[in-house]
Design a protein around this nucleic acid. Structure first.
Lengths: 160, 160
DNA sequence: CCTGAAAATAGAACGGT
DNA sequence: ACCGTTCTATTTTCAGG
């Protein structure tokens, strides 16, 4: 179900270009890759159908939206049973401050990436939405000085 | 320079819709928001120029690309001086396994989000690219069971 | 901010290798 | 099975008001 998909060099180059700018037109893709635009359409369609491409996302600047402070919250939930963590995950995902949520191995069960307006808002968020909840055993707050996206993600063997 | 931008309800609704699906057409946006398509074009153009919209990103499935295992590496760098961490950041960003990189407060200086083919690859990555480096004092590896994106990011006061 | 026209593109159908 | 050509509906984009 989640098997790896076989990709030829044309697919890889298309994926590389689209990860740099997801709005690249099929015409431009075709010119860069060296095939016909309709072939690019077919290729991208297949990458979508096989689940390699999941969708198109808008990147926004949290600071320009009035959320200049970002943090990672390391959360330990108490009994860590399925009937408790399901609602916990959905509640955290629904918070307007949440950007991403990870379920991890290690001493901290969850890591929550949040964007807030100020340290006061961060304190309110941590206290009201996390530490005051019965299923939350511990929260550790780490401010984000800076974060970077990395280059396009490609198959492991493509660089050989 | 990174000041918050004033946004009216039309801007907010456009941002909300585009964060749900960045490929929504101006025509569909216009119908949903209640203005003309050309007005949507103007609005999105302004959101781009003012830096609220940073770009369009392609979401890919690392597992389908042959990288079914993801992890977060908590890295402590030794002297933490500017002439050491600059090259460190650029080297980590250039790794084909890297997805994102955070510079944090707290005991761990950096958090690296990576996607690899197997536990063997993860071990090779941690040993060869991190622990064997002179500037890296300590690496803690946490596997990612699951991760979620959260809802659209909007200004803090829009919900009042 | 809208109307309306022009240009570019997405997407489908078809045919060739 | 894959690729290219062609064609059309849709969308983007740019006037002008």
């Amino acid at each position: 179900m989640s098997d790896s998909v076989l990709l030829d060099p044309v697919d890889l180059e298309i994926l590389r270009l689209l990860q740099n700018d997801a709005r690249t037109t099929y015409k431009d893709l075709a010119a860069a890759v060296g095939v016909a635009p309709s072939t690019c359409l077919d290729r991208v369609g297949r990458l979508r159908r096989t689940g390699v491409i999941l969708g198109h996302e808008l990147r926004v600047d949290p600071a320009r939206l009035g959320r200049p402070l970002e943090a990672l919250l390391a959360v330990q939930v108490r009994p860590h049973r399925r009937e408790l963590i399901g609602p916990f995950v959905e509640r955290v995902r629904a918070l307007p401050e949440s950007r991403a949520l990870f379920h991890l191995t290690g001493p901290d069960d969850y890591l929550v990436h949040v964007a807030v307006a100020s340290t006061g808002d961060l304190q309110r968020l941590v206290v009201d939405e996390f530490t005051s909840r019965p299923e939350v055993a511990r929260v550790e707050t780490r401010l984000i000085f800076q974060h970077w996206d990395c280059g396009p993600l490609l198959p492991p063997t493509s660089g050989i």
